[in-house]
Design a protein around this nucleic acid. Structure first.
Lengths: 201, 201, 201, 201
DNA sequence: CATGAATGAGCCTTCATTCAT
DNA sequence: TATGAATGAAGGCTCATTCAT
């Protein structure tokens, strides 16, 4: 019964944190994690520089959280899409398509964050690596199941998973650079088609 | 007739430029393009900080040139390997293998430089993009020839080329992150095998 | 008739002030007057930062009051000891001994506060000077009485009083710095012996 | 023969260092070691803030050096005066007189620096303690010799030395606080007279 | 040409103080 | 009266860039 009172404060605080993280993500996306200044982030969040330090211990901590949250959001989206797919091939398809789609919608947010490895030293790269490893892990299992089920040829599942993830990342970054990238569908289908059937005659 | 005198100067100047760029590449490789300081680069080149500005307008220009030269060297190496290969499939093979090999040997030099897109804003990304586009262009032609020759299935050559390049870049970056990456051969063969024949049963 | 109501408030207010001052003294003793932060003092007093400003105009005022109170306590202790002594020599003895003893017992509280002149500008030095002058004044009278009574040689009473006070202060500070100072008795006796009888053969 | 060339640079550098230290001493004397800002010191030295860091690693280092140099100068002056005195009593006299005189002439420089123990934590207090210990050591020896020679009564030499040093320090600080202190001679004589012959009838 | 001392804008962080609740 | 979130002025420090020698 004392919870609601405490919660009210917490809600406000969490909201503020969220606003700051969002502002940070915008600034980081525009300027990169190193050039993003606390000054700019504060402006973007319409608060004062000092207030940032009420919610985050340091710039490093804020950048870390911003990166983390960005990847967490993407992971939620992508994992949901993968879970809805049935077969191995369907899951692969879902991974490619949802990743491309998500990054398309959050262009600004991911421009800087997908840089890899990160020039911020290890500040953010750990978070990135963790999520990437998560995708690889999951895809590896799916691929193995596909192999076991006879849907896929007996390839090294981990290696294929890694190749898939890296290829998709490459395409995402490429798409972010392009002014008018192809529709997600086309790129996704092409990736999946090639990775599934190869190009050899 | 005034040419020889000027040329002599030029030679010296170019030599100096070269030395500076090499020093810059070493420092950038170690510290990343942002943390690499002019001070540090000057030390590495055994000249004074002021002298840097006799040969380069700004830090941005120097980083740009250093990146450019790094990619130029790689392009020379990779293109030579591709030229030695006969068929489309052989060329693709050569591209993958030589890229992985080169990056392996120049780990330090490419760690920072392969960041993409670059947190330095557009300072270096243009140079990177130009080279990447070069590889894609060339691979596209080769793939098209392979398709025409009946060696490859009728895929969209450009799209495949791009996928190939991005996949290789992803693997390269991954390899740079790993402490004990697989032998170049294994990774190269896996990439080529999957991209040529796919994974579908 | 409005007095009682006002008084009740006052009692509460004074109690609060007292608590705050005590907290401030603890923090100041630990961190020094400059590094002692209002945040820290508020925590120590179990109130909020803003509340501090309901009872004190500024950090300077609070530090001043805290110093003041510390010296007032010491003055009460030392003056009581001096009052209990009969002769001039006894009073001098009492001053030295009680000062050393008090500072020993309140080490933490006096470490920072005895800095002199104070790095806070004139924030606290006035308070310190007032108390020091009080001791000198009293000792001067006592010494003069001792001279008049023939117990002491005809010295300049004020000058001797000042020398006594400053010597004791020096020894106190020295004792605070030492990890294992001599027993109070020994230092006190030595000071008194030298000041009374000198060292000349 | 190559020395002069190197020396020229060094001379300039040393001169700059000296100027900075002098400026720092003035600012520290006025504002205390904590409130003395690099900005103010730079202004006082008529150079830019950044230049300070060409000559000193940090504010702490600069404050340390400034304190050190101040005490070194005083030690040179005081030790010279003591060396010129013959007997134990003469040396004691010289110590008191020269210390008072030096501090009088360098009022500004010593106001903050004689604060003891120092609120800057251990930044400067080590230097202070070292010099103080030096004086005590030397005086102890002299006093012991005086005792051995029969000039002084058999007192604990170390304890007397410490009392002497602390008393003088107290008087110095007191003098710095006074607007119109007595002539050095008078205070010095009074101190010496009391410490030599005491006040007891 | 070469130098490196000097500059100063800019960054991250702290903290006394204020004010809406 | 009490709170504590918010503020913003400093402060220490770094580093790309300039310029007198």
């Amino acid at each position: 019964m004392t919870q609601p009172a405490r919660t009210k404060q917490d809600v406000v605080a969490e909201f503020r944190q969220s606003e700051i993280i969002d502002a940070a993500r915008r600034v980081i996306a525009r300027d990169g994690p190193q050039k993003a200044s606390m000054e700019r982030i504060a402006e973007e969040a319409n608060i004062s520089k000092g207030t940032l330090y009420l919610y985050f211990d340091s710039k490093g901590a804020l950048v870390r959280e911003a990166t983390e949250r960005g990847h967490a959001e993407m992971a939620a989206y992508v994992n949901a899409a993968m879970s809805d797919a049935g077969s191995a091939i369907g899951t692969i398809n879902a991974y490619v398509r949802s990743t491309l789609a998500f990054c398309d919608e959050h262009e600004m947010l991911f421009r800087a964050m997908n840089t890899y490895p990160d020039s911020d030293g290890d500040v953010t790269s750990n978070a990135v690596a963790r999520y990437v490893d998560g995708y690889i892990e999951r895809l590896q299992q799916v691929v193995q199941q596909g192999v076991d089920a006879g849907d896929l040829r007996p390839v090294n599942a981990r290696r294929f998973a890694r190749l898939l993830v890296e290829a998709v990342r490459g395409i995402v970054i490429e798409r972010l650079r392009e002014k008018a990238p192809l529709p997600v569908n086309e790129d996704a289908e092409a990736i999946v088609a090639i990775l599934l059937d190869g190009v050899r005659a």
